[in-house]
Design a protein around this nucleic acid. Structure first.
Lengths: 350, 350
DNA sequence: TTTAGCACTCTGTTCCCCCGAGTGCTAAAG
DNA sequence: CTTTAGCACTCGGGGGAACAGAGTGCTAAA
């Protein structure tokens, strides 16, 4: 059986109507929507074919049709009109991005919030490094005799710091010596390398120096670890509860759990793919089996990518979401490309 | 009409049974629970009185009784047996707190998570300063000619840092001079004071120094601002959806919104109150009018308090939650009291 | 003051019926 | 071969009616 142009046209009507009204679509409506040149009986024949081909489903014998995941897939791949964002939307997005956003983590989190508010579905955002992160530079600042501040800068130019406490007093000069040591031996290497180096130094240093050193190294490890398993921010979870398909608390709960407790399980985009749409069972994660995800990526500097995704019912408005999301991702890429360019890698100065 | 001991006893039975079973309690059950010495008819008379007095409510004419907010209040104030945590629970809490928790913000967030998992309700956590926060110390670390790292330490010993970029190149010596300037003129003052100082310096400094200075000051202002309007962490929101009273998506949604988007609206504890229970309409916030909140505070160093609260249905198990929460708060106070003591205030060294 | 007895009220459930929407099929028309 | 009109059929949802069960309130007696 062939998938004629007319069948596709019908599939398109069904899908869009269903996205809009959230209830099964009948032959009569379709006939009308297609110009009234065909009778509903003809449509019914076509519908039967489309159902047999697996593009449509029937909730029960005598209801209208709704798209199956396969149907949505075809819709998304071929039928959907690639919409572009309206001028107002574009303006709104640009304006929102125009605000001062400096800190990388907060840029990411805010991007998620923005997207969620724009598309009215929950959104998630993360940054993924293209490789493991290393520390580019250490600084140790004396506070008082029992404590000092460790400042580490990662290869991707995030800066993190923490107040560390030692049992034994340490002099300011000793700290700067330690910082030197750290910068010469503990940069540009992963956590394992650091561990080895630290081992090698055990016993070679007096204990009042070894302790702050190991504290600093431990902290560095934590920082690397935290940015390696990419932190995911989610927002707008409540939007889900407003969707008719998630009125059933059981179903809603599962997804809510994913969005709050198991953020790390949310789908990540393959490298080099600008945007991906995952429909229902195409999702690996069990909780997403009857939801859909649209996820896009943007570039942050040279070797990092930002990830931004939207979670909604399979019935979500793919055209609108995809358009907004990709516009958004492009804007972010542009933004990182110029004004907020990350500084080039450079030699360490102690 | 008097509130006899027997009436109170009945109120207690009703409340506890309702907390447990989530359905109206009938006279027969009560008669039995009270030893079987009284007939259900007698109980019914008492119930009628209690209802008239406003301690009980009837969902409909021929259902059992449930406690009114007033009834809960009496229960909490007088009837509830102050439970203490079991040894296992105490051990579990201690163990969880024993883990490495260093960074103040993450201690707070983790405390929230822990409480939520212990009581099976959503929880929130925050730290409130007893006054405005000031900056205790600045450090400026050179990165390359176009950028430097600003590290600020607040009076309450939180350390924050950020990479800042300048248009004009700045030398390392200039940076340390600037740091000196900052440490002498911009510490121990609020954002307004800083603004004035900065104004006063406008024009007195060459532009290549003024820009980094104002960037650092701006950043400091941001840090102060962020810790002033106390950040609230919430966790366990999904637990709500499991409660029978929040099966109605409308009601659930309102609360979810509060817990995710309007965290700042969550009730704060009066100073010097160790713990407070807010029942239903006692809450100011509209969304909490038929929910209850138990909130406790603990000490963090000299002039900060931590806040930790639990949100649940009015039917929540006050005895259990209160016991665990207060044990938890005490443990935290102890923890901050000894091992993790904040360093004393001290002179700035540049 | 307590209790037994009883009529009453209200909810939730089940069953039934019917309506309407929509289908699938057949047979005729184009 | 395609389209269409016609028609019987299916199924879910809505609207009672009937009913069981839980629980009450009241009365009158112990």
């Amino acid at each position: 059986m062939e998938l004629t142009a007319r069948k596709k046209q019908i599939l398109k009507v069904v899908t869009e109507r269903y996205i809009d009204a959230a209830e099964p679509v009948g032959s009569k409506f379709i006939a009308q929507a297609m110009g009234g040149n065909l009778s509903s009986a003809t449509i019914r024949n076509e519908l039967a074919d489309l159902t047999e081909l697996g593009y449509l489903e029937q909730p029960h014998t005598s209801a209208g049709r709704i798209p199956s995941p396969k149907g949505y897939r075809l819709y998304v791949n071929e039928l959907m009109e690639r919409r572009s964002v309206s001028d107002q939307e574009a303006a709104a997005i640009s304006q929102a991005l125009g605000g001062r956003m400096r800190e990388l983590d907060s840029v990411i989190a805010q991007a998620g919030q923005l997207v969620s508010s724009i598309v009215s579905y929950p959104a998630y955002a993360a940054a993924v490094g293209k490789g493991g992160v290393t520390i580019r530079r250490f600084d140790l600042l004396p506070v008082d005799t029992g404590s000092f501040i460790a400042v580490v800068m990662t290869a991707d130019s995030r800066v993190k710091s923490r107040l560390l406490r030692t049992d034994l007093p340490v002099e300011a000069e000793q700290l700067s010596a330690l910082a030197n040591l750290l910068n010469t031996h503990f940069t540009e290497t992963g956590p394992e390398g650091m561990g080895e180096k630290l081992m090698a130094l055990t016993g070679q240093l007096p204990p009042e120096l070894f302790m702050p050193l190991s504290l600093a190294v431990e902290y560095a490890g934590e920082v690397m670890d935290r940015s390696a398993r990419n932190q995911v921010f989610t927002t707008g979870q409540t939007q889900l509860l407003l969707q008719p398909e998630f009125q059933d608390p059981g179903r809603a709960n599962e997804l809510m759990r994913l969005l709050t407790d198991q953020k790390a399980e949310l789908p990540v985009l393959d490298e080099n793919t600008p945007m991906q749409i995952l429909i229902g069972p195409e999702n690996v994660n069990e909780a997403l089996k009857d939801a859909s995800v649209v996820v896009a990526s943007y570039d942050i500097g040279e070797n990092m990518r930002g990830l931004i995704g939207v979670v909604g019912p399979t019935r979500m408005d793919y055209a609108a979401v995809a358009a907004r999301l990709s516009y958004f991702a492009e804007s972010l890429t542009k933004m990182f490309g110029k004004s907020n360019q990350l500084p080039p890698k450079e030699e360490n100065k102690s």
